[in-house]
Write a protein that binds this DNA or RNA. Sequence first.
DNA 1: ATCCCTGGGGTAAGCGCTTACCGCGATGAC
DNA 2: GTCATCGCGGTAAGCGCTTACCCCAGGGAT
Lengths: 377, 377
Amino acid sequence: MAGIRDTANTPPTIYDVARAAGLSIASVSRVLNGQRNPREETRERVLQAVAELGFAPDGAARALSARLKEVVGVAVRRASLVEAGEGVFADEDESLQFPDMINRGMEVVAQRRGFDLLIRSVEVGDHDTGKRILSLARKSDGLILHDRLLDPAQLARLSRQVPIVTLAGVPTETTANVRGDNRAGMRDLARHLVRDHGYRTVAYLAGHADSPDNLARHETLEAEVTAAGGTFLAGPDWHGNYMAVGGARVIDKLIDARAALPRAIACANDQTALGVMSALAARGIDVPGQVAVCGFDDIPVARHLRPQLTTVRQPIQELGATAFEILHSMISNGEPASREVVLPTRLILRESCGCPPEMAPPAWRTAEPVAEGRPRP
Amino acid sequence: MAGIRDTANTPPTIYDVARAAGLSIASVSRVLNGQRNPREETRERVLQAVAELGFAPDGAARALSARLKEVVGVAVRRASLVEAGEGVFADEDESLQFPDMINRGMEVVAQRRGFDLLIRSVEVGDHDTGKRILSLARKSDGLILHDRLLDPAQLARLSRQVPIVTLAGVPTETTANVRGDNRAGMRDLARHLVRDHGYRTVAYLAGHADSPDNLARHETLEAEVTAAGGTFLAGPDWHGNYMAVGGARVIDKLIDARAALPRAIACANDQTALGVMSALAARGIDVPGQVAVCGFDDIPVARHLRPQLTTVRQPIQELGATAFEILHSMISNGEPASREVVLPTRLILRESCGCPPEMAPPAWRTAEPVAEGRPRP
DNA sequence: ATCCCTGGGGTAAGCGCTTACCGCGATGAC
DNA sequence: GTCATCGCGGTAAGCGCTTACCCCAGGGAT
């Protein structure tokens, strides 16, 4: 019934368009890319053929020829099996709200530049992490690396060949970095805990040991607490991993060991605080009545927890957006617009630190008597 | 001082490797792709040159030549400005936990096949949605579409040229679909509400009107509630949008209008329930004491809310993993392994429906007197 | 010894685009 | 009227790979 390849419909190529328009592929390419201002008639013939055939240029061919893929690779750290938990937190590590929101921030600005994100998770410690990231690099025009994915030597080597921006890392000769202002944020939080609430013993529930963010938050909290004459707790018993499981595990062990809990716990991030609050609630410990708990990041759920989580807000989406913009400048100019960007943080006071909640006045009625259901004991 | 192009380090090409190994590019390609079993010596020379130069093949060139990009495009629905909220939920819509977890599920299995995900968000109603998705398609080997992104005609046309799998949609002649078992899940939930708790008035807080998931959940709930002689509420006053803002807005309007609240509210998804619980709490309405609230999906935060959210669990990551596997079969065989996959759901009873909470026995002590802090009033 | 395989390396033809370069007709300067 | 110029379309050379095809050396069958 029909011509060649009736089934197995292959997308039309620029040759098909040229033929349909009665022009050469060069002309087609030119009107599509707005080069050399083609005659009005030419433009129309091309546009019509394109519309009829439903043509769009093949990304690979375009990339190869134009030496620009319009893709940036994003590498996220995937929890290794030993870190991932089970039970209540089984898939907790898979709900990486912070990185996901950062990615969304990148995606939105990338759109405006015609770029897309190629997302790959890599397990650190996996012996060929370097290779996995290299192959990601060759599928894109540049890389954005979450966390500490590469050791300095690997980073240095790779960054000489492809533009790289790191998040929550440190800038190097050849890479740029974007992060939040950890010290200012943690300082504000520490002072609130110590001065405003008067807590005397404060612990830091750490994130990954190799994370500069973690280090800065730890140091700042320690400095502030001890400067105010308070007791600071940290160390091996307080090692988390930026995930809820990690936070919960620390609390469980401490309680099982009959250790004394501090009056306040500042967590490396919100995810950890989530685990801590959950573990505390399971033991019947009141937050913030008996132990105050704070996070860092202000991920969206923080305000939906009960008690609502006091935390240090980072402009999460902006972190991603900024990382993309810097990478984009490296891709197009060869030079980063800036080697290091530090975005401001802000202390968000809610209930989990001991501050009072807010509440709107009620005004309602139910359709049936409340006694009808079975309220919990 | 050095040779040509000292700075402006370009990644090595297969020609560089061939030269360094004293072989032809064909040989290099063959050992790298495991074709035609090269001599041991040849293999070693190539491997060494590759290691020394830090070579990895260019993705675009490989894709063009092999006619396989090893990339699948993923289109997510981005909230249009009119849907997105402000205030407490300002960036709520940007925390799309459900789609993000689905994507993670895809990503993990994609890795195993050597594929990556190219993620793009599209605003529905944007007049050139079709074009945005087409260009995404040409950058990948196949598409996975979240939500209802394309109208049937567009979908039919595009799916003839490129493999497409939809999520939470309906299968067509040329596309496959993956979804959770809405009817079974909602049936279990409805019966629990009506039979176990004895609630007589139940409302359905809807999601997007064009969503098949939404329709199925609505119909099933309505059927079950009315079959049991209960009063079912739904309609214009109960239209949400799958986001927290949507749920909160419905509750606020209802209360402001002095409308009677039902004894139980089943939300189209967990995100909506989050907004509902938050709005209810702000009015001082007790959940589940006065109004019971339930969700659908069981996103990770559901269990961290207070009260913990009763919901219908969907195997979220599996949904993504399955979608990828089907798409992969379409890409490699030309035929989908299956046109429609319906994954089982499971009722998860927690506190928000009125069931009693669980709690572990306490065993702890604090390091300082509790009175020291300033507990809230 | 001759011929045919066969194994493994090289040559070169694309894959579908972008763009440098060429050519041709129309236009303006003299 | 002649010649340089300009505007715009076509031709073809890559971009960096994969792979069909060719070729040659070595070994077994005859």
